[in-house]
Design a protein around this nucleic acid. Structure first.
Lengths: 125, 125
DNA sequence: TAAGGTACTGACATGAAAGTAAGTGCCATA
DNA sequence: TATGGCACTTACTTTCATGTCAGTACCTTA
């Protein structure tokens, strides 16, 4: 596993001017770096989960935000929704291939945040 | 079925319950995934830059948000501020070691967002 | 004198994101 | 009858991130 070789250089469009306001990448970036988006994606990276499991695992999320975030991620093709026509309802959520790609990038980031949280926030007060 | 590259496993604390509301990691995550934080970090990953350069490169940012974001990142020990006592004022911003670490993780993410933006947003309308 | 550049700060406004809480339909159990 | 779980939706409210804009201190140029 090679983690930190040379960081890939920025695509040319990013290199100058980072990238223009209002371009699609900004929107995508907003979705995937959203407060709950990251948590959901991360949680699902461990495998298929039901609504109520996600609700528990994404500690503090409201039902509204869970529904809304899942919908956005589903529309973006990152999350797959599998509703089974049973009573009581059972809906399983999982990552798509694209979602797994993303999660693979998110995990090191979150792990880093986790490892450095003390140093960053602790050293602040 | 096998996922192509097995990503680093989540730290135990993340693995169950993702992670608790209100813990420092959440705060750090919010800082580094903030709308402008990512852009500033990315821009600085290309080298030291002045206030007015950053303003231009982070297309669409207001002076207030630039100041605010830079302050947060500086407090978090990700960005170094070097003010020279000259007239007119000259202030250079650069990444700290920790900032460079983070940027190295952010770059693949942003690159991915850039590469997949079309497919994600384009397929939506 | 006035305008312009640099690097900001602070007050106020707004709008989107997030929270709260209640409702929906169906069934199981008591 | 009523309570509770599942997977949501909807209406309303609040919070907060962000935007707008004016002001500051100093010097330069016209």
């Amino acid at each position: 596993m090679k983690v930190s070789a040379i960081p890939a250089p920025l695509p040319a469009t990013l290199a100058d001017g980072v990238f223009p306001a209002g371009c699609p990448s900004r929107t995508v970036l907003d979705h995937i770096t959203s407060k709950w988006g990251v948590l959901i994606l991360l949680s699902l990276s461990e495998g298929e989960q039901r609504w109520s499991e996600l609700r528990r695992r994404a500690d503090g999320i409201s039902e509204k935000m869970l529904a809304q975030t899942l919908k956005t991620l589903e529309k973006d093709g990152l999350v797959r929704r599998d509703a089974q026509p049973v009573i009581p309802p059972r809906v399983d959520y999982s990552l798509t291939e694209r979602g797994r790609e993303l999660a693979a990038l998110l995990i090191p980031l979150v792990t880093w945040a986790f490892d450095n949280a003390e140093a960053i926030i602790g050293g602040e007060g």
